[in-house]
Nucleic acid binder design. Structure first.
Lengths: 133, 133
DNA sequence: TACATACTGTTATATTATAACAATTCTAAC
DNA sequence: GTTAGAATTGTTATAATATAACAGTATGTA
């Protein structure tokens, strides 16, 4: 009877965890998420990691590798999840996804020594944001 | 006589761990390193992580964030350790540091919404290497 | 010498992530 | 509707990655 949520095709746990990440102003870590959703019946790490894995796979969220944290994709059901770029403030830890078509095209078409063709990239740019400058 | 860069004389543990990473054809993980150097008297994680932190700081090695592993810098005492790019094979896990002046300049001068000036970036490009294609 | 700084050694613990297995629910074909 | 495969869930245990805290040792330099 439990219908999938209408908004997206997410399962119950996936929806709970996506909602949490989506409304967070900052990247969330797996165990922060776990702690937050225990009142909703998600009790163990594998439940969180499985949902995170799936959400990353379908492009609803991205992992910020340098932080081991997750942000929701801001590019409408991310069609470019294989080409991600983030702006990261070294002071306040704010993370912002960069949607720059030129940048994306430049990197997607980047050929290294003609020896390798790239299918995917992740770029993390660090600096100080407006507020922290 | 003014020197561009301070020559860093590595300490004993730093040298042991750098040598190991430097001669490795592939990225090494912290605990792989730990097990390898136990015969040389390095017994505990903090000793490894401290050396790794320092080597990263001075640009002798880089961390591959998507792998939690370390490679030695191939750009002679890395002058561009704040501007790193890596080519990563998704099949054989081979990692190669990319030294591309145009790419480096392009990304270093990249301005996002004019709101943030970047001091550092890390780019990881994924695909299949020659051998694995 | 004396002082500051960096490095080392050590124990314990925190944080991040996965293995393994059983049960349930969803979906699509019949 | 039945049913079988796939996906998801719940659970316990453990692996893998990383740091805190503190005491001692070496090294540079004034």
């Amino acid at each position: 009877m439990t219908r999938m949520h209408k908004e997206h095709n997410l399962s119950k746990n996936q929806q709970i965890i996506f909602d949490l990440i989506h409304k967070s102003p900052e990247p969330l870590k797996a165990y922060t998420i776990l702690f937050s959703v225990q009142k909703k019946g998600i009790n163990a790490p594998p439940q969180v990691y499985r949902a995170l894995d799936k959400l990353v796979e379908i492009g609803k969220i991205h992992k910020i590798e340098s932080k081991n944290a997750f942000v929701s994709c801001k590019n409408s059901d991310c069609e470019i999840s294989k080409a991600t770029a983030f702006s990261i403030c070294e002071s306040c830890e704010m993370v912002d996804e960069i949607s720059d078509v030129k940048l994306s095209k430049y990197l997607s078409s980047f050929n290294y020594k003609k020896g390798m063709k790239f299918k995917r990239f992740n770029l993390e740019l660090f600096g100080l944001c407006k507020k922290c400058k």
